[in-house]
Simulated assay, not measured.
Amino acid sequence: MIILDDVDRRILRHFQAEPALATADLAERAGVTAATCWRRLDRMRSEGVILAEEAVIDWSALGYTLEVSLRFTIDKDQPRAFDEFIAAAREVPEVLEIQTFLGLVDVRLSVIARDLRHYQEVYRERILTLPHIADVEALMHIARIKTDEVLPL
């Protein structure tokens, strides 16, 4: 476990809020010098605290109006069934997220589509052809109430 002090947490709080800030501006908001801020960010990146800085794209603005959560139970009769399913699911462009679980559900895929007709095409041609499916359940997404990856620092 990596130990963060108050300065690290202050920098991360402001960094999470506005990751595109210049280091000098971030340093000013965190109440440290630019050099200190740069060194702390560099250390947190090298220690794996900060994994990436990425663009977040609103896929609905690009015409994808549907999101469906698909929950799968995998037929695990073959030793590599799970890995083969995951590898094939990664190749489906409409799959935004893949999660694995312990319990009744093995895998959850978050799938987007432009409309119901497109979803039906993706489901029949790309999803149902994934290997080793024992059972699948679809949950139509209605609303995103909270989506946040900001930690309470």
Rank of each mutant, 00 (worst) to 15 (best):
E54R: 14
R40P: 05
L41Y: 06
L51D: 09
I11Y: 07
V68K: 09
F15W: 06
R13K: 05
A20E: 15
V68W: 13
R10N: 02
F72S: 08
L66P: 06
T33V: 13
C37V: 12
R45W: 10
E47S: 11
A30F: 03
E54K: 15
D42C: 08
P79T: 10
A30W: 03
L70W: 11
D42K: 05
R13M: 00
A24N: 07
A22M: 15
I57A: 01
E18N: 09
A89H: 01
L66M: 03
D58A: 06
D42M: 01
A34C: 02
L70N: 06
D77T: 14
D25V: 15
A61W: 12
R39V: 05
G31S: 06
R29Q: 15
F82Y: 03
E84I: 00
A17I: 10
I50L: 01
M44T: 02
D83Y: 14
V32I: 09
C37W: 09
L70K: 15
E47W: 03
L70E: 02
G63C: 09
M44K: 03
R45I: 01
A17N: 07
W59Q: 11
S60P: 12
Q78Y: 00
S60V: 13
L12T: 03
I74F: 14
E67L: 06
V49T: 01
E91D: 08
L62E: 02
T65N: 13
V68Q: 06
R10Q: 01
L66G: 11
F72H: 06
I86T: 03
A55F: 07
E84C: 12
F85T: 00
F15G: 02
A24I: 13
Q78N: 04
A17W: 14
W59A: 07
K76I: 14
I50N: 05
L41H: 00
R13I: 12
I57W: 00
W38R: 08
R29A: 10
V49I: 02
G48R: 00
H14K: 13
Q16F: 05
R10E: 14
E54H: 05
Q78F: 11
E84K: 06
M44F: 02
E53Q: 12
L12Q: 04
I74T: 09
F72Q: 06
Q16M: 02
G31K: 12
E28M: 10
I74E: 07
S60D: 07
Y64E: 14
T33C: 04
D75A: 06
E53L: 02
L26M: 10
A22R: 02
S60E: 06
E84W: 07
A24K: 12
A17E: 04
E67A: 04
